[in-house]
Simulated assay, not measured.
Amino acid sequence: MNRNVILTCALTGAGDTADKNPNVPVTPKQIADAAIEAAKAGASVAHLHVRDPETGGISHSMEHFREVVGRIREANEDVVINITAGGGGDWIPDANDPTRGGPGTDMQTPAERHAPVGELLPELCTLDCGSLNFGDMVYINTADWLREHARLVQAAGVKPELECFDLGHVWFARQLQQEGLLDGDPLFQLCLGIPWGAEADTETMLAMRNKLPENANWAAFGIGRMQMPMVAQAMLLGGHARVGLEDNLYLSKGVKATNGQLVEKAAGIIENLGGKVMTPAETRAHLKLRDPDTGKTAGEKA
């Protein structure tokens, strides 16, 4: 059991959710405000996507990332920043010509995915460790792309959060470690409940956890109604946790949530199980993250 839990809040994601809950942040200001709200509620980490302010849909705009990160860093509320680097991998075959991407396809090169991370240098960024049948589309992340992306993240000095949606992704993340493309103790995020990847249940979480390297830090999350059960299960199995409107829109049945409310509910679960949520400073020290102000690794003399 882990009694000192890093609690991440995934604020908005890129899914078609903005019309389903008015609390899903869309504009850069709304996303930054949501990060600050989550931090005030007790989140250790804010996980960031950006959206098109006009449509609420997917965006990779550097301008939006700059505004969100700038607003968070200027606020008087500490939180570890984790920028997504997993966008631009959505493939939907064209109905008439399956050799081409149809409407909704959104592809980026590893360098394009990495651009916000390389410029803004957050403490953490995601590295999605494989391809997946993601609902009705295919999320594409080939092995060679991942190696290229891992090298870019490593050169930037940002710690990757290794997002694993199935057991094969854990296997490939271990391969990246063996090839020297991951520095220090790796950080894994076990992503559970996304059709058609790993299921959100105890057996699956335990199986994935048991395949992690001995020196790994790890967290897990479930989507929808499995969000809070997976908070408790991850803690009990020795891991950390993630909540937020990217993964779940409801506080309880029929009650639409805010990010802050989800953080507060998860923190309550952690505390009721006898644990505590790590502060951002404790999180930086535990994961040996680079300090955003000094550029030094947490605990290293400036």
Rank of each mutant, 00 (worst) to 15 (best):
N82T: 09
R51Q: 14
V170G: 00
S131V: 03
R100Y: 02
L167C: 09
C125S: 12
R100S: 10
S61V: 03
F65H: 10
L120I: 11
N96F: 09
D106S: 12
P110E: 11
E112Y: 12
T142Y: 13
F65Q: 07
M107I: 07
D136K: 14
E112C: 10
N133H: 03
L152N: 02
A111S: 14
N96H: 09
V153S: 12
E123I: 08
C129V: 12
M107L: 10
P93G: 08
T142A: 05
I140C: 05
W171H: 03
A173N: 06
C129D: 00
R51H: 14
V170T: 08
V158T: 11
A75Y: 12
R71L: 10
T142H: 09
S61Q: 11
F134P: 01
Y139F: 10
D52V: 06
K159H: 11
T126S: 10
L152W: 06
Q154F: 13
A150F: 03
G130N: 03
D144V: 15
V68R: 00
G157Q: 07
P122L: 03
G130R: 02
W91T: 04
D144P: 09
E148T: 15
C129E: 00
W145N: 13
W171P: 02
S61Y: 08
G135E: 05
T109D: 11
Q108P: 04
N133G: 02
I58Y: 12
N82I: 06
S59A: 04
W171S: 06
H60P: 00
D90W: 01
G70D: 07
S61P: 07
M62W: 06
G86I: 06
D97M: 05
H64T: 09
T55R: 06
T105V: 01
D128I: 11
H114D: 05
S61F: 10
S59R: 08
E148R: 12
D128T: 15
F65M: 14
A155G: 14
P116D: 02
L152P: 01
T126L: 04
L127C: 10
W145H: 14
D94F: 01
F165I: 07
L127F: 05
E67D: 11
G70V: 04
M62D: 13
P98R: 11
L152I: 12
G70Q: 07
V69P: 01
E148A: 13
E112V: 13
I140H: 05
N96Y: 08
I81F: 09
G88M: 07
L127N: 04
P160Y: 12
N76S: 13
V138G: 03
G102C: 05
E112L: 15
W145M: 14
G118I: 14
R73N: 06
D144F: 15
G135F: 11
A173I: 07
E161S: 02
T84A: 09
R100G: 03
T84H: 01
F165P: 00
M137W: 03
H169C: 14
H64S: 14
A115F: 02
H149Q: 11
D90E: 08
H64L: 09
T142P: 08
G101E: 01
T126R: 01
R113G: 04
L167W: 00
E112H: 13
V153H: 13
